[in-house]
Design a binder for these strands. Sequence first.
DNA 1: ACGTTATTTAAAAAGC
DNA 2: GCTTTTTAAATAACGT
Lengths: 87, 87, 87, 87
Amino acid sequence: MAEDVSDAPAGFAKEQLKSLIERIERLEEEKKAIADDIKDVFAEAKANGFDVKALRTILKIRKEDADDRKEHEAIVDLYCQALGIFA
Amino acid sequence: MAEDVSDAPAGFAKEQLKSLIERIERLEEEKKAIADDIKDVFAEAKANGFDVKALRTILKIRKEDADDRKEHEAIVDLYCQALGIFA
Amino acid sequence: MAEDVSDAPAGFAKEQLKSLIERIERLEEEKKAIADDIKDVFAEAKANGFDVKALRTILKIRKEDADDRKEHEAIVDLYCQALGIFA
Amino acid sequence: MAEDVSDAPAGFAKEQLKSLIERIERLEEEKKAIADDIKDVFAEAKANGFDVKALRTILKIRKEDADDRKEHEAIVDLYCQALGIFA
DNA sequence: ACGTTATTTAAAAAGC
DNA sequence: GCTTTTTAAATAACGT
């Protein structure tokens, strides 16, 4: 669609492009603001004597645990498939 | 503070840790949601025939321009401060 | 060193550059050859009726388990640090 | 084959699975070792004053040239085949 | 401030 | 072909 402007109102694709770019830029600003908030929380934690590296590790582990839970549910099934066993 | 639990109510640091972890996890969820939104916009752009790689290039150029503008403004401010001029 | 050729035999840096490039290209060829071997094994597995996706999952889990083992050894310590407890 | 264990010695598919997994894990170790070697060469280049990013650009260009060459040769071969010419 | 390491993002590749 | 995964590159954080 975007490359075929011959049968479109003049500037249509251009407007659409502008809109897409601005939406993405807006979202990226929001994302950056949240990233900054996260940094602030880490800074606060550090100011209160917490070991930031340890906090990061805890967060990482909790994330992995959450991610793995779904995955591990599928493993037994997959092993069975892999072995040609009908569980 | 966190390492000195001797004069704090039992579990104080623990509660604070819990709070920090949860705040960060919440913010990271929000960040991820926005990242997903951005992906959606790129997908929409692609579906409308736009070249995603070209879009990224445009965004990058605009970002650099914006960064340059901020840098320029920062330098001007600095000079104004140095000169005692209130711009 | 590379940018200062004034006190070096003519073409020294050039030779060194050539050597570096060729070493990397050689290694990348070897890497590609091994990647191809891996693909062959998957193809063989598939030909023998194994579910390739399941195999990949098993490999992934085994890798994660191996990686996590060291990490999990450090977690208790880190939790303790994060909580200001001396384990 | 793997899914039909009815006429195979017990544990046959399992042994085959084990073998496949181990072969792949071995190959992936080798691949990783080579990737590490490549990193070492880049580190050495950097230590000798070379611009790593520029090196990567050179490698990319040479790779594209090589790919183009192969593609060209493939087309020539194809034409030769089509024309019954033995090149 | 530097250099190293970790994270995040973009490009490339592989499979369906 | 297109979509998901893998790999590479850029960026950013952290300690020194």
